[in-house]
Write a protein that binds this DNA or RNA. Sequence first.
DNA 1: GCGACAG
DNA 2: ATCTTGTCGC
Length: 228
Amino acid sequence: MTADASSPFPGWDGSIAGARALQAQLAAQVSLQDAFAEPLRTVAGFDVGFEDQGETTRAAVVLLDAGTRQPLESHVARLPTSMPYVPGLLSFRELPALLQALAMLSRPPDLAMVDGQGIAHPRRLGIAAHLGVATGLPSLGVAKTLLAGRFDEPGPERGDRNPILHRGELVGYALRSKPRCNPLIVSPGHRVSLETAVALTLRFLAGYRLPEPTRLADRLASRRDAAA
DNA sequence: GCGACAG
DNA sequence: ATCTTGTCGC
């Protein structure tokens, strides 16, 4: 047969050029208007790590109560790594495992917070935006470093931020989440506005550089001793 | 043409 | 991302 209907990337021919073309197409479906449940009940944090020298992709998801910020459940999905890391095409390498982890939740989250870029991406489709469009879930990206664009160093206090501009467009904010720590790169994924992406990130901070959803998923995806 | 380049 | 201990600084 030809195309695999179960593929997370419908229509993709497997090529680099094809992946970029698909990104441009999906990016047009991204909405930057706030459209998520209010009050927010739950938020899920996502991140990916690797085992066996990269041969196995390990995706982690942690569902938290939006009110208390306490974790409700967490899962880990393992899949054989299918492609190498190519700057700008991260989602084609990590999204399949992430979707697998998402499916393990007892219920869908009201919001998805992903370790990586939202629209702060060359073609406006970082992994957080890709996950949002692919699932229809509201999403935002919280990355540790910049991929595209530029910004001026934000002030030293928690909450200080500066815009990230790429080709003249505002695509996100460099946010100081904690004093003496490098700023977080925050951008909308899907159904979340630029301003709300920052507000949500601040809302889920709990004393660490990374917000709880992403911080907990990070540990589960990358620490050798993590259970589940 | 020369760098930069999420995880 | 991952390979990997201690160490400097707040």
